[in-house]
Design a protein around this nucleic acid. Structure first.
Lengths: 135, 135
DNA sequence: CTCAGTGCAAACTATTTGCAGATTT
DNA sequence: AAATCTGCAAATAGTTTGCACTGAG
């Protein structure tokens, strides 16, 4: 339930926050820029500000509801935190984003960190790929 | 030899370009923001513009002399391309950047790409870590 | 001498912040 | 009603671009 998540994060249940959460939860698409969320919500029914979208996404990120990624696009990309960690393939032709998870890579990273005297806190693995067959 | 690299890239041998290349080649430090390069060169002897630093670095990147990375810092980080691919550990305490290379991870990435119908074009693996012992 | 290259200031993009009014509880 | 939240406009940070002048070949 959406509302519970917001309550737990100490956030009031406001229209912008509900609209953004619903969009993230109910869309086919899973990855959004702040701008694209703004566009979609404006189209639906206007009266929301881009600054609010950023503010809400930042609050959601702090609450652990949302993850923020930096791909090469320049803009931040946001996605709902569904609790299952994954990394990303970016199709450089289409811009599509595919999620994947590989436990061996995860373990290797922790080992490498340890070898260097570190503990892995967070990581970002992005593979930029092009479709196989053609060209 | 520096000058050869520039010639091959079709770039005139100018003072800003030489100064930046030398800095990248002869520094203990390997990773620089554009701003920090600008600061260092200004301190040494003024009369260089930040815009030029950006322009030169972008040209170097296009020529394959330099790589540009996006860490969480917000600023781009540049390093000389020494021909040996590596990934990065960012020490979140100190901001230090450590390079590492793991062939197994490299191979796994290509395999994963293939499994998803892609060919790996480029990738970015950054591990954010904290020193082990001390909490 | 010519054209690429440079410094400076202005422009741009993505994101954040200040504030007065609107909303939630 | 009190406190949080929002939209708007203005501010910021990092980077890029326009332009007249400088310097490399």
């Amino acid at each position: 339930m959406d509302k519970k998540d917001l309550k737990e994060a100490g956030l009031k249940i406001t229209q912008p926050r509900m609209r953004i959460l619903e969009l993230l939860e109910n869309s086919e698409q899973r990855h959004f820029s702040a701008e694209s969320i703004y566009q979609i919500l404006m189209e639906d029914s206007p009266g929301i500000g881009l600054a609010t979208v950023y503010r809400v996404l930042t609050q959601f990120e702090a609450a652990g509801l949302v993850e923020r990624h930096q791909f090469e696009s320049g803009q931040s990309v946001f996605e709902l935190n569904r609790g299952e960690h994954h990394d990303h393939i970016v199709d450089v032709k289409s811009g599509n984003i595919i999620e994947f998870h590989d436990e061996i890579i995860e373990v290797l990273q922790r080992e490498i960190a340890k070898e260097h005297g570190f503990e892995l806190v967070d990581h970002s693995l992005i593979m930029y790929c092009k479709p196989l067959e053609q060209e």
